[in-house]
Design a protein around this nucleic acid. Structure first.
Length: 304
DNA sequence: TCCCGACCACGACCTGAACA
DNA sequence: TGTTCAGGTCGTGGTCGGGA
């Protein structure tokens, strides 16, 4: 069997990430010709051109694309082994994790996750960031440790774990008409609504379900997050639809009345996603356990 | 349309370190 | 000391974009 040089694997990883001999060389601390020769060795080893010329660029071959995720995972693992010092215990480890999630998720789970984390790792902290888009680049770059999303994210190497299936409930201010009577689809539709957390999409599942019944609703207000939807509902006659996990804390906070939406709405599946480089990291594993545990606790509280 | 400069990958050749 | 390997410099050829 031909022996495999770990440096060659690392170089191959950088080449496939950059798709440029020059830039890969800069990252490896080599000249472009030296990197070119490294690519040549990798080609001999793999029995495949790996990267081929396409105009002024290099593009990966089908085999390279097929192996890319595995090579990256192996290289990340190798780097983490080489660069890790003596493993500190979780109790002594100082880390600040960055979690990208919807504002409502942070509102409902942030302190629960931190409490769980600090039980075993009191020196660890959590920073929540808003999600301006669906890009996986922050995970790849390492600027985000964990992403909480409502659909499985693209990216062949990205690790995904389902957390829960979340139902939506309606929310109105305490003195609202809908807080006093039995709610039908027609009554639900005839009030003005708040549209939230749909990244600017004009219509959502509620509109589609109402349409099936020959009904439609009027959106009076568009807001960027479920949190602002609840604030708006608490101070107006508008109707908000928010994830059920968000309402337990918000009900007491805003004095809201919540109700089951009288429509056949599919629950939304929530995932946590992370980059494979963090997969074996004990601290990151603990963080994922804490996020999952916080979700489980909420689900049990709602009797699922 | 053509020319020119910039950019990029790669081959040729040389050098230095490691090893038998 | 000779061989091997991985690094460097230099030069070449292909491609692209901008300007005349």
């Amino acid at each position: 069997m031909q022996s495999t040089d770990m440096n060659l694997l690392l170089a191959l990883d950088v080449l496939l990430r950059e798709e440029s001999v020059t830039i890969a060389g800069e990252r490896m601390g080599l000249s472009a010709p030296a990197m070119s020769r490294t690519l040549l060795r990798a080609r001999k080893l793999m029995g495949d051109p790996i990267l081929v010329r396409a105009g002024r660029r290099l593009v990966p071959t089908p085999k390279a694309l097929e192996l890319k995720a595995r090579i990256q995972a192996l290289a990340d693992e190798a780097r983490s082994i080489v660069h890790s010092g003596p493993t500190a215990s979780l109790a002594d480890m100082r880390r600040t994790f960055t979690i990208r999630a919807d504002e409502s998720f942070a509102g409902a789970f942030a302190t629960k996750i931190l409490d769980r984390l600090n039980e075993k790792a009191p020196q660890m902290n959590v920073r929540f960031l808003a999600r301006p888009d669906e890009s996986v680049e922050p995970l790849r770059e390492g600027s985000v440790d964990l992403d909480i999303v409502s659909r499985s994210m693209a990216g062949p190497e990205i690790k995904v774990q389902m957390l829960d299936q979340v139902k939506f409930v309606g929310a109105v201010r305490a003195g609202h008409v809908l807080a006093r009577e039995k709610i039908t689809a027609a009554k639900f539709a005839c009030h003005k609504h708040i549209s939230s957390g749909r990244m600017g999409k004009p219509r959502g599942p509620i509109d589609f379900e109402l349409e099936k019944l020959g009904l439609s609703r009027t959106i009076g207000l568009w807001v960027p997050s479920f949190f602002s939807a609840l604030v708006a509902a608490a101070t107006s006659d508008l109707v908000a639809a928010v994830p059920r996990y968000f309402t337990s804390s918000a009900v007491s906070l805003f004095g809201l009345h919540t109700f089951r939406i009288p429509l056949n709405l599919e629950p939304v599946t929530i995932f946590q996603v992370w980059h494979p480089r963090s997969d074996a990291d004990p601290a990151h594993r603990l963080l994922r356990e804490c996020v999952r545990g916080a979700f489980k606790e909420k689900s049990l509280a709602f009797g699922r």
